[in-house]
Amino acid sequence: MASHWRRIGIGLWLLGVAAAPLSGDNYVIKIATFVAFYGALALSWNFIGGYAGYPSFATAAFVGLGSYAGALCQNAGVPMVLSWGLAAGVTAIAAAALGFVVLRLRGHYFAIGSIALVEILSLIASWWSGLTGGGEGLNVTILPGGPVFIARFFLYAMLAIVVLALVATVLVERGRLGFGLRCIAQNEDAAEMVGVPTTLYKVLAFVLSGVFCGAAGAAYASWVAYIAPTDAFSILLTVKVPVMVLLGGPGTVFGPLLGSSALVLLEETVWARFLEFHQAILGAVIVALIFFLPGGLLGLAGRVRKSA
């Protein structure tokens, strides 16, 4: 995709989300906040799943870990934004340690290993009730200032995380790390042979895919002011985020944002009317993606331009 089109797309996306409060409708602001939340998660997944080509289902593990770490810090009296930063740090360290173990696996085995991380952390959150409140969940201190202020505050907080993730994506893409990850995605053995430190790079990609999820998860916990193991470590979320990236265009800067906003808006406008078929429709989207859109929506745009 030509870089100026990409810049225009990203600019419009950011403006569109940032302009949501102009509508004066709290529902619109809420949807925009969800668009930003999933945008941050999709950009995160893109590091490991898009650039490195590792089919990670660990997103919910990072989001859940971040939300619990942030909530616990905040309840212990740490200022809110600082506790998000701490949550991001905790998630990064956990991603490095877990990555070192699960990134030894490849392909389907890695996918299964990464799902296992979600389940294990979810179980820990349920069992360790002294710390986490167990299955009853955990209340998070509510931000004072009234619903209108809170809605706007969290919209811009999520947007700020998206911007940080975007900056990281552009830096990675332009540098050695991005080049090395693309080599790994195509032929890991050959990448190692030309001098790419594959283990280190994969762990870095996994940490990047964790750190913004951790921050977004912590912000989410502060936003909804209540978290429970089944919400925080949601298997549905862990599947949805990769689908968003595949929908937009994996291994690109704009693709994750495009895909996540498309899916969130679809979910709100169409699926909300067919609640009982919600997951069946997600399944159909996945199948359609695999068969008809291997490069995502951006890949489709590229094909149209080529044939024109």
């Binding site: 195509q186 032929n187 050959a190 990448a191």
Partner: peptide, 26 residues
Amino acid sequence: VQPFPQMTVLENVMAGSLFAGASATP
């Protein structure tokens, strides 16, 4: 032979230069 199939011929060689050769930047 072990190329990176979806990269261009040039990018394949760049990989060698970037990671094992002396090139500091892409």
